[in-house]
């Protein structure tokens, strides 16, 4: 039997083509990150080639730049918002998701439908109303305002996600805990909650990232430089009242993205492990 070149190497060729196509699809993203990193270390760029290397763009790390707040203070603000949003969301959704999954209360179904509809609303459309609410609560130009706003806007959807994780835990697990001599709350804390850890991790990561990358509300409701976060800082480098500093923009951009990337590395490993070793049958 004679096989053609293609037939003899069909598997290899197919994989090669597959990789080629995948690369073509992802290259715009990869190349733009690549460009961003290169740009942050160069004076100027000709296409993808830096004209001259420099670390001057990173000067914001060790010196104050005129017209900008201190970068470390800004980073701290960003982390504060991200972590507080995360804590609020994890706290509320780990309980709310359980309630939606396990309790049969009046209005449960319509509540869940409503959550879906609610999520379809772009939060930008709420801007004016939120302004009045924050003003009334005296939370304008205050990071707590942003935190509460962010957490409350995302909690419904995250609760829905957590409900899905709770739904995956068999009732028997809970009954076993009750029979073993624990109250419902104790069973939740000692048996059920550890089993939805992957869900908590997912919620926490998404909450953290959404807090970390929040821009619109910061840009709208924060006025003082001392409350800036990194997104606002990046925005400022493009500038309304000054010339865009592309070197600085790239460097701050990379700096801004770094923690997220690091976090993602840690957590994705952790999450994959959890799903594989998770609940069986």
């Amino acid at each position: 039997m004679r096989l053609s070149f293609y037939q003899r190497n069909a598997d290899k060729i197919r994989i090669f083509l597959f990789i080629l196509i995948m690369f073509a699809i992802t290259s715009p993203i990869i190349l733009s990150y690549f460009w961003l990193i290169l740009r942050s270390f160069s004076v100027d760029m000709k296409g993808f080639i830096p004209t001259q290397l420099t670390v001057k763009n990173w000067r914001f790390l060790w010196s104050e730049i005129k017209g900008y707040p201190n970068i470390w203070k800004t980073t701290l603000n960003t982390a504060f918002v991200a972590i507080m949003v995360m804590l609020f969301e994890v706290f509320m959704t780990s309980m709310g998701g359980y309630a939606l999954s396990r309790f049969d209360f009046p209005g449960r179904t319509s509540m869940m439908k409503f959550i879906l509809v609610l999520h379809a609303f772009p939060s930008v459309s709420l801007m004016v109303a939120i302004y009045y609410v924050l003003k009334y609560l005296n939370l304008l130009d205050n990071l707590w305002g942003i935190i509460l706003l962010k957490a409350s806007l995302e909690t419904p959807w995250a609760t829905w996600v957590m409900k899905g994780f709770y739904d995956g835990i068999p009732w028997e697990m809970e009954w076993a805990g009750l029979v073993d001599g624990y109250s419902r709350f104790q069973v939740w804390r000692k048996v059920i909650l550890p089993l939805v850890k992957p869900g908590v991790a997912v919620t926490a990561v998404f909450a953290f990232l959404s807090g970390w990358s929040e821009f619109i509300f910061i840009n709208t409701f924060i006025f003082s430089q001392e409350f800036w976060t990194l997104s606002k800082y990046v925005k400022a480098t493009i500038g309304d009242f000054r010339f865009a500093d592309y070197g600085l923009l790239s460097a701050v951009g990379v700096f801004y993205a770094l923690p997220t990337i690091i976090l993602f590395f840690f957590v994705s490993k952790y999450m994959i492990k959890l799903t594989i070793g998770g609940v069986k049958g």
Binding site: A176, Y182, V191, V279
Partner: peptide, 20 residues
């Protein structure tokens, strides 16, 4: 009387062992 005061032991079809 809630389950915890009934002094019962129970075995389930899927065993319901705590996987963690």
């Amino acid at each position: 009387v809630p389950p915890k005061y009934r002094e019962i032991g129970m075995v389930f079809q899927n065993y319901a062992l705590y996987p963690h």
